[in-house]
Design a protein around this nucleic acid. Structure first.
Length: 440
RNA sequence: UCCCCGGUAGCUCAAUUGGCAGAGCGGCUGGCUGUUAACCAGUAGGCUGGAGGUUCGAGUCCUCCCCGGGGAGCCA
């Protein structure tokens, strides 16, 4: 192997910017994603995290590099040096005329994930390698873009980014199952939502949001559920229900437009229809009451009773009917958590809304105006059968300077899945946690 | 927790009524100077998820278990 020190190497370039370096000699540092050869001409596909480039190796390169180009196994860590050339035969329009190949690490065993079909179980067991895949990298980049857009949106609106604890002693949604952990001999739980804490923080800072992991110990076994997932939660003092909906709508539109603009390459790699995404958020989001939604889906043949929560078939029907994100408002109080304020014109319904994504991606946001009166909150805690003591601090918020306030939680993975057009949430997060899947 | 489907070569899958264990891809060897999941030739590769049962004979039928996938409920 020819040793080459740093001084002799041309400057490093990332694949995504190679089109700016046509005619220059560069070094690409990455991994071998494929090889092909046709006698005296050899092709080395190199992936560097920003994209893939085809390296072309001919006998013009040094003999050792030419020989290596034929034999480097998949996922060899490698540096390649050469001149960037525009060539329409190359995928991506530019290729590298490689004159030097420097292996950094050559695998001694066959890479388990061939560029062929594999079952989901096989791939999930090798998730730590699967994320190098051609469809997985773009999803994770879109996820980054979506999270960035969320932060940018709130920064522009002068919200304060804050945090909620992960280890908690109380439940937010009384009914939902919690993971228990041992906290120095006393039982504690992994938070299923930061909301209660954000209500406290928003009384300190006015407008707040956080993005963090939450945990649900439900034995859900579907494409729309993870046991550990990320939530964007926002909470705003002095904001009431209608303004809350506008905030959610503006956020979702901002994120979609940002990703559609900044991640064209990724959406293309995922064969995701950008125009469809943009069309879905072009118009104001429609809104329908729970009662009308039940009517609508029942007429469409979905079997459900008034008073039941919207199941997957009902959500799919709404999604199909509107073809855009749609707010479902005013749910019966019986199927919503204790902290929601009730409608002044109908105490049987909560001042809340779920946002159902189009194309069957389900509920991506749940939000509501929160109870602001101490008496009503204590009453609703009792009705929910929850103990008063652990919620005392939460009741305190209504004791001193209580204001109308509203907020919502957005499911990051569901949003990413919708943006990418992928069927299962497990691909919308690097290392999904699901029923029966704690590894890798 | 409930319902449905599956487990055969490294991977994806065949195997007729219960009758010799097979293909494609990947690997390896060789050929080809523009390949695009290249192509051509050759080659290695198996305790058919596990335990028990029926049978002259089980990948195939029965019972139990394990593992994986899909869905429901619940939710984001």
């Amino acid at each position: 192997m020819t040793a080459r020190n740093g001084d002799g190497s041309p400057p490093v370039a990332y694949v995504e910017e190679l089109s700016n370096h046509v005619g220059e000699r560069v070094t690409v540092r990455g991994w071998v994603a494929g090889t092909r050869s046709s006698g005296r001409i050899r092709f080395l596909i190199v992936r560097d995290g920003t994209g893939l480039v085809q390296g072309v190796v001919t006998p013009d390169a040094d003999a050792e590099s030419f020989d290596l180009a034929e034999h480097l196994p998949l996922e060899t860590a490698v540096k390649v040096e050469g001149e960037v050339r525009a060539d329409e035969r190359a995928p991506g329009g530019v290729e590298l005329a490689v004159d030097h190949v420097l292996p950094v690490h050559v695998p001694q065993e066959e890479y388990p994930i061939a560029p062929k079909e594999h079952g989901v179980g096989f791939l999930m067991q090798r998730r730590h390698l699967w994320i190098r895949g051609l469809k997985q990298m773009p999803v994770l980049r879109v996820r980054d873009g979506a999270l960035w857009a969320m932060r940018e949106f709130f920064k522009e609106r002068r919200f304060v980014a804050t945090e909620a604890p992960i280890l908690v002693s109380t439940s937010v949604e009384g009914t939902t199952t919690l993971f228990t952990v041992d906290y120095f001999g006393q039982p504690a739980f992994l938070s299923q939502s930061g909301q209660l804490y954000l209500e406290a923080t928003c009384a300190a800072l006015g407008r707040v949001y956080w993005i963090g992991p939450v945990f649900r110990a439900e034995k859900s076994k579907t494409r729309r559920h993870l046991t550990e997932f990320w939530m964007l939660e926002a909470e705003v003092a002095y904001v009431e229900h209608e303004e809350n909906l506008r905030l959610q709508e503006d956020l979702v539109r901002y994120v979609v437009q940002y990703v559609a603009e900044e991640h064209r390459r990724e959406l293309e790699a995922l064969e995701r229809d950008r125009k469809l995404l943009l069309d879905e958020v072009a118009e104001p989001f429609p809104s329908i009451s729970y009662a009308d939604a039940v009517e609508l889906v029942r007429r469409a043949g979905v079997d459900m009773e008034h008073g039941q929560d919207l199941g997957a078939p009902a959500e799919d029907e709404l999604s199909k009917h509107f073809g855009r994100p749609v707010f479902v408002e005013r749910f019966p109080v019986g199927i919503k958590p204790f902290y929601m304020k009730r409608c002044s014109d109908d105490p049987d319904v909560a001042l809340c809304a779920d946002l159902i994504a189009p194309e069957g991606y389900g509920e991506i946001i749940g939000g509501s105006q929160r109870v602001d009166s101490q008496e009503e909150l204590e009453q609703q805690l009792r009705e929910a059968g929850l103990p008063e003591e652990p919620y005392q601090w939460y009741v305190d918020l209504r004791r001193w300077g209580s204001t109308p306030h509203s907020g919502f939680g957005l499911g990051v993975e569901r949003t990413v899945a919708w943006l990418c057009g992928i069927a299962h949430l497990r691909e919308a997060i690097p290392f999904p946690r699901m029923l029966d899947r704690l590894e890798p």
